[in-house]
Design a protein around this nucleic acid. Structure first.
Lengths: 210, 210, 210, 210
DNA sequence: CAGTAAACGAGACGGTACGTCCCGTCTTCGC
DNA sequence: GCGAAGACGGGACGTACCGTCTCGTTTACTG
């Protein structure tokens, strides 16, 4: 999927763009990302590996970042949500799986790097959030909404908050230590989910006032 | 602090390196990072702004990343831990402050970008963790140990786990949404700390087996 | 004329090189040579003066010396041979003119410097001799052949030998003393030509035995 | 011999300069000249090879050229003049030997390169001519004066003119063709010397009018 | 089905930054 | 105060890519 999306309205005269070429460039991008990393990625290298002229790449993606975001979108499919009937168990499994995938795959650091760059580039940030994060987040939020609806979690919490509490700890662990084992991930997610079952009022600050 | 640290034992022949110059380069690096961002940072620009030859920079830091790590180390001082007598309140205040600083300052994305690059560069990762993360983490861990010793937290948890559970959620929120308000940060930290006061056995999975 | 000369047969894919640019670079080279001299000549300065990127220069000439040779070739046209009917007078005029030009123009020392460097660089030497010296030498040799054919010179001499005997003395004088006046040049050339009219047998060694 | 020559009058306080060091630097210079050539010669390389600090070199020779000239002076001793009793034969032998040495040794091109550079640098030129060329030329001129005194050469010629006529042709041949064999050198020198025995009046222009 | 407009590869273009080498000067130490 | 060691600001090196721009060629739609 390229960055421009012009609702099919314009007939576009002349030779149409080759979809094969789109695919070849994205594939080459992913290869280079995995082998060389985000910082070392070069439009020239991508074009060369895809057997394509540089202008053909620029015609589709205005910057390296747009290209990488497209590659992430195309390459990292939203995880499948498990459905065991036990909604909290599903949430736990999903969170553990998510964190391990992020920490274990070569695209994990790439995603982080793009995220960091997005901090300075609003257009990139919007693209990233709209096309990459939101679809993946929706899956998570839906699952959490289900748990809330079933009354398995503290009703006072919003879905986004639950997501942060459950997914944040293992991801933070990975960022800070550079490693994430299955055990650690599970321990963190379990502990977080446990907290979400506490009824309001068991808050540590309830006796200290605010 | 440059990357080489040779225990002061060797007399070092020849003209010694100028400490003023170290400082000027670090200062210039921070300025450029804030103005231009990590990706756009150039050794040439840093040297120019510091009024220094490029080789003088290379003499001290072998790569852009080493330079940036040094700049982070010198620039971002470990936060002061509050001490109100209430250890859990201290922890909460500290976590909120930490997350807001990260999200609010221009060096936040820089730190993340370096973290991401460190994923591919073991030497850089080690330097970053040893000189930047560890000192800051020690402060946190000490505080948590104190809370554990006072019996204010679930005794079965390790300090590192507590850290991840408390600091992870607001940081994750910032990463995913690109924003972090004081309210959100406080809500997340409060909820996390609340969970850590639950005695073991209130675990959601305790009845499901594992 | 750049250093590559591929018989116009190949269609040459991609954007063709700009001939304007060739000219601009050569012109800038000559200017810098005259103002700064050979040793101080810098690719960077040439490119800058020509309003051209450095890579555009390197694309055409692999080294500073190739560039300078090209500049010499383009800049120093073969001298016109006078034709007064008197072939020996033509030779004399030509030799004097040649030597004075070499000694009097700013490119004289440049040519010598390149000649010296060519002593260590066979490819450069070949280029220099093929494209610079040979065409100029041909003019001289033709004139000498004419003189020989007319019987005005000692028949036993080869044209190359005559050239060395006539052109060598004034050039040597310039090299050794750093100066060459018209009088000196004419005296030397006259004396040399006089020698070449001697019939064989008037050799200085013929009466000294060997 | 260094470039400054302060007549031994001043006592010079402090540690005296090491003469060993002078010699080591000159030797290193010659080695580098032979191996790398004049253009590639670097003060740094010379200092390194001599086992000497760079400032020690600069203290003695202000520029690379001064250093090279010193090296030439120290290294290339004036040729010995043969003395067979036959003064013209001596001159011939000497000229042939001189040209072959120049063309055959690695310092030949070096001398030419310095000569070329001297064209733009009057101080260098003076040093070169005073300390290198003049002593060598004196030997030649003396020999020629002897020949003139013995009446073996045309009396109307000055010694300098004879030198140019005899030494110029083989040197020119070497410069233009890049080669000089013993046969060629001898042929040229013989022919030139023959011319110098012609009495005035046998001039080629005498019958052509002027 | 011929024209034509756009996409294609190739690669030159003016640039910028790279990391290195060397310049000539300076500063510090030890002899 | 000489001499080594080596840092200093500076400048040029030759290379790699940048993003843009011609080129000649190919390809699919359009009239």
């Amino acid at each position: 999927m390229t960055h421009q999306d012009e609702g099919a309205a314009v007939p576009r005269r002349g030779r149409p763009r080759s979809a094969d070429l789109d695919r070849a460039v994205i594939a080459a991008t992913v290869e280079v990302l995995i082998e060389q990393g985000y910082a070392a990625l070069t439009i020239e290298a991508v074009a060369g590996r895809a057997g394509v002229g540089r202008p053909a790449v620029y015609r589709r993606w205005p910057t390296k970042d747009h290209l990488v975001v497209s590659a992430l979108i195309e390459t990292v499919p939203p995880l499948r949500v498990p459905d065991t009937g036990e909604v909290l168990r599903d949430l736990e499994e999903f969170a553990v799986e998510f964190a391990l995938r992020l920490a274990g795959s070569p695209v994990g650091p790439v995603a982080i790097a793009v995220l960091a760059e997005a901090g300075r580039r609003p257009d990139l940030a919007e693209m990233l959030r709209l096309q990459y994060l939101r679809p993946r987040d929706t899956v998570i939020t839906d699952l959490i909404e289900r748990a809330l609806a079933e009354g398995r979690l503290n009703k006072n919490l919003e879905a986004g908050t639950v997501r942060d509490l459950v997914f944040g700890p293992p991801v933070y662990h990975w960022l800070v230590t550079g490693m994430l084992t299955g055990n650690v991930a599970r321990t963190l997610v379990e502990a977080a989910i446990a907290a979400l079952q506490i009824p309001a009022g068991a808050d540590g600050r309830s006796d200290g006032g605010a």
